[in-house]
Simulated assay, not measured.
Amino acid sequence: MADSEAIATALAEQQRRVQKACEQACRAPQSVRILAVSKTKPASAVRAAYQAGQRDFGENYVQEGVDKIAELADLSDIVWHFIGPLQSNKTKLVADNFAWMQSLDRLKIARRLNDQRSDDQAPLQVLVQVNIDNEASKAGIAIDDIADFAAQLAQLPRLQLRGLMAIPAADASNAQQQQSFSALANAFKQLQTHYPQVDTLSLGMSNDLEPAIEHGSTMVRIGTSIFGKRQA
């Protein structure tokens, strides 16, 4: 069972941290949402965070996420985001169960999600994953390919493009980080000029949420700092 008090305390601390970062960036605190990343954690931990006021939750593994969604079906206003790599044979599970898909970077996957999303569901909200540091080991499209990819997504009626997501290089210098974050922020602003519904820049985690917020992030993904160390 999850330690509900510890999770509530940790969540409140991260909320204060986000608020302080927003103040330093001269932004309204409500302009940045926390996505609580609950991978490897039990449904009881998600319920504890929910009871402490958290509503957006991110899952990296399809089946684990689907199992938690089923177990927590009584929490009607919880919002589930899929944030991990997605194989073709798992797209229907995401299309059926999640409200958001944050790691979209292949047209084949986008088409499958569109075709498998039922007509009685709201469109799947999607973010395009961008490989902002051009790391060979990471998923994501190049910044220069965003416009073309977005145009193709616009042809898929059961998907709604909401913005961009990125996982920055872990070992980047401050100068490299600033350059990457600035480039992504500019790409996000450019995307907004063509798609008025675009409002979400998912950038920043526990170790870099302050510079991410400084560069316009509207959603920070926090896991360990809320739920504690992950299971192996």
Rank of each mutant, 00 (worst) to 15 (best):
M1W: 01
A2Y: 04
D3G: 05
D3H: 10
S4Q: 12
T9L: 08
T9F: 05
A10D: 00
A10T: 00
Q15D: 01
Q15H: 06
Q15G: 02
Q15F: 02
R16Q: 12
R17N: 09
V18D: 00
K20A: 07
A21W: 00
E23C: 02
Q24G: 11
A28H: 13
A28S: 12
Q30P: 00
R33H: 08
R33P: 00
I34V: 03
L35G: 03
A36Y: 02
S38P: 06
K39N: 07
K41F: 06
A43T: 07
V46R: 01
A49M: 07
A52L: 05
G53N: 09
R55T: 13
D56W: 11
E59H: 14
N60H: 13
N60S: 15
V62T: 11
E64R: 12
E64W: 09
I69M: 04
I69D: 01
I69N: 02
L72S: 03
D74T: 15
S76G: 11
D77L: 06
I83H: 04
G84R: 14
S88V: 14
N89W: 14
L93I: 01
L93K: 15
D96F: 09
D96E: 14
F98Y: 13
W100H: 11
W100R: 07
Q102P: 02
L104P: 03
L104Y: 02
D105F: 13
R106C: 04
L107M: 10
A110E: 04
R111D: 12
R111H: 11
R112P: 00
D115F: 03
Q116I: 01
D119H: 14
D120K: 15
Q121I: 13
A122F: 07
P123Q: 09
L127P: 02
V128T: 02
Q129M: 07
I132R: 02
D133A: 11
D133Y: 00
E135M: 10
S137Y: 09
K138M: 14
A139W: 08
A142D: 09
I143N: 02
I143H: 04
D144K: 15
D144A: 15
I146T: 09
A147S: 13
A147C: 06
D148L: 14
F149R: 08
Q152A: 15
Q155P: 03
L156F: 11
P157V: 12
P157C: 07
L159M: 11
R162E: 12
P168S: 08
A172I: 01
N174A: 13
Q176W: 10
Q177L: 15
Q179H: 15
S180K: 09
A183C: 07
L184A: 04
L184M: 08
L191G: 13
L191D: 10
Y195K: 08
Y195N: 10
P196H: 10
Q197L: 14
L201T: 02
S206P: 04
E210W: 01
E210H: 05
A212Y: 09
I213E: 04
H215R: 10
S217Y: 07
M219S: 05
V220D: 01
V220E: 00
R221A: 05
R221E: 04
T224H: 03
S225V: 03
S225Q: 11
S225H: 08
G228Y: 07
Q231M: 11
A232D: 11
